[in-house]
Design a binder for these strands. Structure first.
Length: 140
DNA sequence: GCCAACGTTGGC
DNA sequence: GCCAACGTTGGC
């Protein structure tokens, strides 16, 4: 894998939209983000960028990998037209989910944006952190 | 269910 | 333009 592109992490409450839902749908509009910092990250995404899919509230773990299928466009759910959405497609589930507890306990991940700011729903993941989480998930 | 973090709103 | 009040998110 090339490290030329940044990687990302998105959060979703599985009761609302889970990774399994994404696998079933094949593709989804990632809308509803109402935070400027998160929106900036959405705007920076390019087609093909890899995205960790994290289950918040229930599960509390990274459960799968998705991919950006469409760059940012005006969020259809935002009547004011201030925010953007992207489209995601599923890539693969992780062999083992990587829990928030595990991530917090790993010093190599201490700088992760999602750990430093728990409410950020879309955040960048460094190539090092990406590789480390894949390793923790049981991938090579 | 509670509370901390943090973003947004609105009065001044 | 400041800042207090309020709302929302998300971990615990």
């Amino acid at each position: 894998m090339t490290d030329a592109r940044p990687c990302w992490l998105v959060k979703s409450e599985p009761g609302t939209y889970s990774f399994e839902d994404l696998v079933r749908d094949g593709r989804t509009v990632w809308d509803g983000v109402r935070n400027n910092a998160a929106a900036l990250h959405l705007k920076a995404m390019q087609v093909g960028d890899q995205v960790f899919f994290y289950h918040s509230q229930e599960g509390l773990a990274v459960v799968g990998v998705a991919e950006v299928a469409r760059t940012a466009f005006p969020d259809p759910s935002d009547a004011a037209g201030r925010f953007v959405a992207v489209e995601l497609t599923p890539v693969r589930p992780l062999p083992r989910p990587v829990s928030l507890v595990q991530m917090k306990a790993n010093p190599a991940l201490a700088d992760m944006a999602m750990l430093r700011q728990s409410r950020l729903s879309v955040s960048p993941v460094s190539p090092q952190a990406w590789a480390e989480i894949l390793r923790m998930a049981g991938e090579a």
